[in-house]
Design a protein around this nucleic acid. Structure first.
Lengths: 224, 224
DNA sequence: TCAAAAGTGTTCGTGCTACACCCATGC
DNA sequence: GCATGGGTGTAGCACGAACACTTTTGA
């Protein structure tokens, strides 16, 4: 037991975050170009080592703030990958998270930490370092799944949006078309939305009513 | 960065498993009495440290085999608790799992590792060590939730069972009554069950048809 | 006036809910 | 023969799915 304890000191805890946003009509993931070690030049999701003084949640929040201006975004633990060979020269266990941000959210300059930062559509990812292809895939599955039985979609939208925006968001995340009339009927019957009274302007078509979520807080609700 | 790396060597990875079985008409959890350290005498779920040479999954399987005879049971990662003060003298991050076993499954004598082993109904737990009350609660929630949209319930049943057994299992896990006729109609329409042709005997009432699952493999299916 | 998206109801079928009585066995 | 759980059908209702035209604006 003592010997086991000794060797355990070499297990390293890491943290990786899959950050989603809807951009140009597709679901995108934020990737960074790895600066150091054996995967140099490949893309990966942001993350790094967990400090012994911080909780795993705090750590995820820290790495999120490294790249995203506002810390007020949806962030949830995804899965812990125990097989990862993150750093080929050592055993690393990674606790992964996923985050949702609106397209408008500002991405910070973090050239100190990463060689580059860029958005990629989830269905056209470059080759990824570590086991991050698996991590991203799992995150997409989780997001899809939670979208059908909760209100998390609001985390991908601006504060105010049209019903068409909302429908588009659902269609992009779920990757299927929805019927406009049925969608509106259903979503309005859930009593989650309120009209702001404002309308869109400046578009070459009929102005749309703007809505916002009654509560911008996670809730499980049967939507689709 | 180098300094951070140094300190990280003191983060310890642990593994805890919530083991469920249906016994005496209630959902039960297997608890062990802690032998060592500051929580001596309190109950906890089985688990321990992760060896640097094993994956986290392998480790969970190892602790499961410590107490359960057959390794062929449902086992799934639950959540990673990063705040835990498992051992008050060091920082421990615990990757938790939950397992489902049939009542008939044999529990091993593991007095080497634990001071005692016993089943407790989930709604009448003793005081638990560490943050294990939170862990068990989350496991129960997950089990309930997955029961409604998958076939995991088979892991809690024997190979052969009556429709009443099955209904009872659902009622116990979900904690609500189901209508007998509607339940049978629904469950049979899913094409998951096959009659074995055998019947129960020796009971002071009409014999019941015995069924088994067509596939004893996890699948997500809309059940309730 | 044309293009482009917003907004709006009805019909039909499926699936969930509620509900009560006879059957086969052991004692 | 009696107590105990096993086994079976139907009717009403709510909800999801399919479907097309008018409205309002900018250019």
């Amino acid at each position: 037991m003592k010997k086991e304890d000794q060797r355990l000191r070499y297990a390293i805890l890491a943290n990786d975050i899959v950050i989603f946003a809807i951009r140009d009509g597709t679901l995108n993931v934020l990737l960074v170009k790895v600066k150091k070690a054996s995967f140099r030049g490949l893309w990966a999701v942001p993350g790094g080592l967990v400090r012994p003084s911080e909780t795993v949640d705090t750590c995820a929040r820290r790495y999120l703030r490294q790249v995203v201006a506002s810390g007020d975004v949806f962030l949830e633990q995804l899965y812990t990958f125990g097989k990862v060979d993150r750093d080929p020269q050592g055993r690393v266990v990674s606790v992964t998270y996923y985050a949702l941000i609106p397209d408008a959210e500002r991405i910070l300059d973090c050239s100190d930490d990463y060689a580059a930062v860029a958005w990629f559509p989830v269905d056209r990812l470059p080759e990824l370092a570590y086991d991050h292809d698996e991590v991203v895939q799992l995150a997409v599955d989780r997001l899809r799944s939670k979208t059908t039985y909760s209100n998390i979609i609001f985390s991908l939208l601006d504060r105010e949006f049209t019903l068409s925006d909302l429908q588009r968001a659902y269609e992009i995340v779920l990757n299927r078309k929805l019927d406009k009339r049925n969608f509106r009927k259903k979503i309005l019957s859930l009593n989650q939305l309120v009209k702001t009274g404002k309308k869109t302007t400046g578009k070459a078509h009929r102005p749309a009513d703007l809505y916002r979520f009654r509560l911008r807080r996670y809730a499980t609700i049967q939507i689709l």
